[in-house]
Structures are given as C-alpha cells and as structure tokens.
Design a protein around this nucleic acid. Sequence first.
DNA 1: GAGCACTGC
Length: 906
Amino acid sequence: MAGLNNCSGYSSKDGSDLRSFSNALYQKVGTWKRKERQFSMSGLSAYQKEEGEGVNPILRQPDADEPLIFSGSNSDKDELAVRRCIVEETRDTDQIRKRSRHAYLQGRKEKKLLEIEQKVRDHENLFEGAKLSQAEEMDLMYLRNICEIAKKPLEGDYTGGYKMPDAYDLDGAINQEKRFSVAKRASTNTEAVQMMNTFSAQEAWEAQQIGKSIYKFGSQDRNKTCDYSYILEDQIDSVKGSVLNGNKEPNRVEKDRKLRKALPIYSYREKLLQAVKEHQVVIIVGETGSGKTTQIPQFLHEAGYTKHGMVACTQPRRIAAMSVAARVSKEMGVKLGHEVGYSIRFEDCTSEKTIIKYMTDGMLLREFLTEPDLGSYSVVIVDEAHERTLSTDVIFGLIKDLGRFRTDLKILISSATLDAEKFSNYFDLAPIFTIPGRQFPVEIHYAKAPEPDYVCAAMKMVLQIHLRQPPGDILVFLTGQEEIEVVDEKLRDLTRGLGTKIGELVICPIYANLPNELQAKVFEPTPEGARKVVLATNIAEASVTIDGIKYVVDPGFCKIKTYNPHTGMESLLVNRISKASAKQRAGRSGRTGPGKCFRLYTEYEYEHDLEDNAVPEMQRTNLANVVLTLKSLGIHDLVNFDFMEPPPSEALLQALEQLFALNALNVKGELTKTGRRMAELPLEPMLSKMVVASDKYKCSDEIITIAAMLSIGNSVFYRPKGKEVQADNARRNFNAGTFGDHLALLNVYNSWKWTSFSTQWCYENYIQVRSMRRARDIRDQLEALVKRAEIEITSNLNDLNAIRKAITSGFFLHAAKLQMHGSYRALRNHQTINIHPSSVLAQELPPRWVVFHNLVLTTREYMRQVTEINPKWLLDIAPHYYQLKDVDGPKTKKMPHSQGKSRISH
DNA sequence: GAGCACTGC
C-alpha cells in the first residue's frame, strides 16, 4: 500500500481509505452537476455563489505540495468556460475520433475477431464429444476469452490493457504466445479481479472502478446532458513515484556555463587519468550533464596523449559530432577544423594539425577500411555506447581485437546507463569509472491504472497539466506522424476559442519527415502567458533537444524496426520502450529547471513489463552490409567473431547467402573483386551491386542517381494534410513513359536538375527539398567514389532497357511473378506479396515480372519501389541463381498462375 | 487504394 500514501490526486489527508473517499468524491461531483443544470440559465453566477464550498473536487483538491494555477478568484469562471468549450467541441470529436488510430484499431480488431471466432468454432467441432486434456481446454477457454474481449468496444475497455501489435519473432513465425500475452493477462483480469491484489496500483484502479459505478448509479441521465465531462471527469490519476536524482541548483547554471572547472567531471580528472594510464580499456559511466564528451578528450590532450596520435571520439549522430567539436574548439580557444575538428559524411572538417577529432561511429568504421590498425590514433573514445548502434557494435568487436596487438592504444567506452558491467565483462573486466551527472531533479508520476488508449490518455494528460500545473512547456512522446496529426487536430479543436480565458496552448509537432521550416517552430520561444505543447516522436528522446520543457508525458511506446531474415521483410511495430528510454525521456524535463514526468503506465508495468535496455540494432537488422564490411577487413570467421551480443545465426547465414548470390563472395566465402568494389561504396549491398554492374550496361550516370534516390528512402514526396489529391497528381506527372518506380525517381531527380535545383520547383511538385539535397549530396559522393573505382561515368538515358538490366543485376533476388488476382509471388521464397498502392505500377495493368527494392509489412506484405523486367534477363544476369524452369517452366506458358511447383536452386 | 520511428556510411 506504499503507493497509496503517495498518490497525489485523491490522497485523503484525514487517513480515510481510498474507496470511501472516491465514493464521496463522485457523489460530490454528481451534486455539482445537478446543480449546474438547475442554474443553467445563469450558470456562471451559480458558480460564483457556490464558491468556497469545494464544488469541484477534481480541480479544487489541491496537492499539499502542488500549488494550483487556479488559486485566483476567477478560477471557477475560467474552468466553466473551458467546460463550455468542451461541450461544443465534443460534438465534432466523435468524427475526429473516427479518423483516429482508435477507429483504425477497432477496424483491425473486428477483422481479427472474425478470424478468432472461426478458430473457436473449428476447435469446438474438432473436439466435439471428445474428452479434452487440460491444456486443450485451457486453449479453448483462452480463445473464447479473446473473443469476449474483442467484442467489447475500445472506448472504456479497461480490460484490454494496452493495444499491442502482433508480435513477430526473428525466426519468422508469429510468436503466438507473445502475441496474445496481453489479451491473456487481460482475460485473467476480468475473470478474477480479486486476484489482482498483489500490487497497489491495481488496487487503486479497482477502487476507482468501483467508485465510478457508484457514481453512475446516482446519475443515470448523465450522458444526455453532460458530454463535456469527457475530458476532465475522466481524468487520469497519477501516483507520485520516485524522483530522478538531481544535484543542480538553478542559480548555479550561469556560473557553470562559464566555468569548465565547475563541471562534476573536473574533480575526477586525476583519478581518471590515472585509470587510463594503468589500463588499456576503461569504461566510463557518466550521466547526462557530466561533461564527459567535452572534457575527457581535453584531459587526455593535456596529459600528453596527443603527442603520438589523435584522440578520436565517436558519436552516433552527425549533429552531435559537429556541435561538440565546435564547443570544444571554443573552450580551447582554437579554430574549428585546426586542432579540434570533426569528420562526418560529406564533410571532413579536419586538418593536419588536428589532435582531437569528433566523428560519427560510421565514419570510424570507414576509417578501419583505409587504416585497419588506426595508426594515426592514440586514443579512441566510443561515446554514447549504450545506444548500441550497428556501427558501435561492430567497432567494439574490431577495437577489442585491435587492442591485443596495439598495446599503446587506449580505449575508452563511455555510456550513460548502468549496464556498464556488460561492457566491462566484454572488455576483459575493464575497470568502471563512474562520474555523477548534473541535472535538475525530475519527479516521476505513474498512472494509477493502466490506460487503455494511450493517445487519448496523452491528450487528457496535456489538458490536465495545462489546467493544474504551473507554467512550463510540455513534451509529449508519440509513436508516429499519424498519431501526432490526430492529437494536434484534436487538441486544437478542444482549446479553440479559449483565448484569454485560459493560457493559450501553442501546439508544435515535430518528427523527422516534417519539413525543416515547420520543425523550426518548436525552437521558437513560447509567447508570454502561453504554454507550448511539443508533440514529438522519438526524435526528441536523444536527437533533438528543446529548451524550456518542464513536463514530459510519456505513454511508453515507440515504433521499432524489426527484420525477419526468413522472408527478408522488415516491419515497423509499435512496441514498449525500455527502462533506459523511459529514464531518458523523463530526463528531458529536467534540463533547465526541476521537472515532472507523467508516465501513462503504472509503476508495476514499469518494473515488470519494460525491458532494461532496448534490443541492440545488431539483433534486428539485415546484416549483409556488416558482413561485407567485416569481410573486406579480412575477417573470415564471422560465426566466431567476438560480437558483444552475437546476432541470430540465421541472420548471419542469410547475409552470407545474399552476398554469395550477388557474387560478392566466392564459394570459399572470400571476397571477390566485385565484392571489394562494392565494399567501397556507402550503400546497401544490393544497391552497390547495381552500381558496380552499371559499368557493363553503360548507364552509370543514371544508376547512381537511382541509387542515391533509393537510399534517401521514403521521404521524397510530401503529402500535406488536405492537399492529398494535388500531391498525388503532381506525383503522377513523373510516371509517364516509365516502367516503374525506379525510373520515376530518376525522372524526379533529372527534372529537378534541369530547373537548376530549384526550391520553388520542389514546392510546386510536392517534393521535399531537404531530401532532394541529400540525394544530390549522396549522388556527388557516389560519383567521386565510382570514378575512383575506375568505373566510367556514362549516360544512356535513351536505353531504358539497359538501366533496367542494371537494376536487375542488383535486385534479381527480389524478383516476383504475377499470379491470379493481381498479387505476386516472390521467386526466392514463394511468398505472396503485393504492389504497394503508392507505386507507379499500382495504377496500371500489372506487369507479369517485376523486381522490387524492399518489402514492408503493414496491413499486407507490400513491395515498395517496383520496376517491370523481362524474365529472360534473370537468366542472363544470374544464371547461378535461376534456371530456365524458374522463369519459363513448361506449365507456365499456358497457365501462368500455377507455377508453384517450380523450384529455385542455389 | 495505403499510410513509413530514428540514425549512419
């Protein structure tokens, strides 16, 4: 019951138990409502009369330590105005909700329900009359339970827990246990609510539910007149949990900025240098604000480590590398690019004088290719190691190996979290050095009960904070663009017209695909008297820092890319965040002053359902590129390569197979000449194979454009809300005379080039300038590298067949054949797939043979970026992979759809 | 006729 004593919303100060308290509370609310109806003719004055009686317990029940902003005399008037507005707006809310994720989930749920019901029937038929084993009975009961749960509407469906997506495992099959675990847990909840007495959060929830039912009993006609209660009455109760340690005092901030010596790390200087002197590898745990990234390289320089080589410090992000380098060069009083520099893709800001070099981790990996012993470095610092990016993990393996014969090389691994033990074990029990951070304290509040719909809950929470908490900006973490747009629209609707009655809400969305000029709004200072609400994706967790955030709303979800090596399919799934992420998110509120973090999940869920750390990227990605890099570094035994956490062996094998098929590896698993050329290019292997092959077809100019356009991904076309039709029309202009998306992308780039890279042209055609500039950068880089690899740049724009052949050379593994009903069958694994509706070819008569760039799993399995090919090319280009019967079997001539028996030999 | 988190070379 410890949690209850801390609860901030309804805590009873006289010690009476929660149930009777909430009971009384709801009765009070009921009275209040009835009175309001009585006085509806002059509602406002009725309020003023009642002032002082505690008429509105929800807003008038202040926390002991939490002053209300409504303490002034106008509070009830203001609040009434808010409610009035909400009454009016609720009429529209239903419609908005229909378009929201909510409705989307409901639709999917219904589909699923039909499937499950059929399954139950099947089961029942199968086992009719037979005696069931206990396990079978459990199974059946469990399916029935799911049916029951699925039948309930989403709104108010407290039994359903969080809405979780289907769980896919790396081994290909859908993991049924994982998939239904949420439902399973929920079903036990409904059947035996009494069983949930093991933890306080659940108890509190139960008490609240009982309180609600009592309240309903007393006001049956509530739905007719009291729609406005939607937001405030159904408020989210939170329990105050732990406080993230903070040791920073507000008045010291300014001083700290000026005094390097005031940073916490400074007092550890001598000890740290001693540790580095005695050990080759040192693990540094430094919390945010400890100054480790800026100070440690300077310490090492002062201690003389730069006499025999540079100090390298890797960062996972470009911006971090640039900005830290700029700050350090300022501190040292040297010009950026001289003694202190940075090195990122497209930009090498270093010189011969450089002794401290900040760089992205991918860049250090590239340096391994040109200088395998890292001879020009004396110290390598791997910063932000806890993020476990693909490059960081590969660097770990390489540098651990390198350290064995370069004993003079010092290695520092710096991480923000407490999984330092893992790092230490990996690096042969390297000593761990802990430096305290300097941050403001952050109060953590947990939800008292699980929230069924986190989008809706987040919205309520924002309004609650806005009404109840002192000024300060709010940061809300959502999973994607769609959610952000829904919440944005709904919040705008709800607060429209409040104007002067209540502080204005300035709503700023931010996600990576949002055009720059719209992103900039987030960083503008909040107007006087207003409150900024930032709706962000994970971008705000580490990549973007917004000043002035005082409150964080954390629903506890994010989208994570998963990869299935069997089908070669990747999918973005909404998933729980890790404890480390939750901590990081909370910390975003304590940057400029003490903050508060409202987690929309219970403390129990935090403790038991969240993993400590996110799954490293290595475990959930296509490894072809990693394997190619390692092979070109001369590492042949990949199975025994010392990964910190080895990737799944299937993924490794699949990557080897793919590289073999692409002719990058020979039968012995050694790198071929083609493979060596491919490794030079900063592209995925299939794309780099395409580029290498373009030499043969004399169309390298076009192919590198296509490769650049494909590697910027899906952010070329911009489709603003409300202008979808115009955007789609503009997009269609590029499709004329093409055989598919690849050539359409080529058209886009060339058209832009012919307008001399006009920004205006991009706006007119609903194309994202930022992405196009990036494509141009990549294209320029590729052009230089291709020339260095002695591939001649030749343009052959008129011979579209040559271009398509070159594409096929890279993507023959991704070939598919039309079946009946317009779906396709992948030649590699006979999987049924479809053309993505956004593709050029989705508009036209489906071609019989295609190659595609990648597969995504959303509602169905879709191919994105599809181009028509001639099946004979497959035989010409990949005779080692395809045989005549694969593309031209005797049966296929008459019955093109019954080709299932043909087999692919490797 | 569907909806793509974030990086990096």
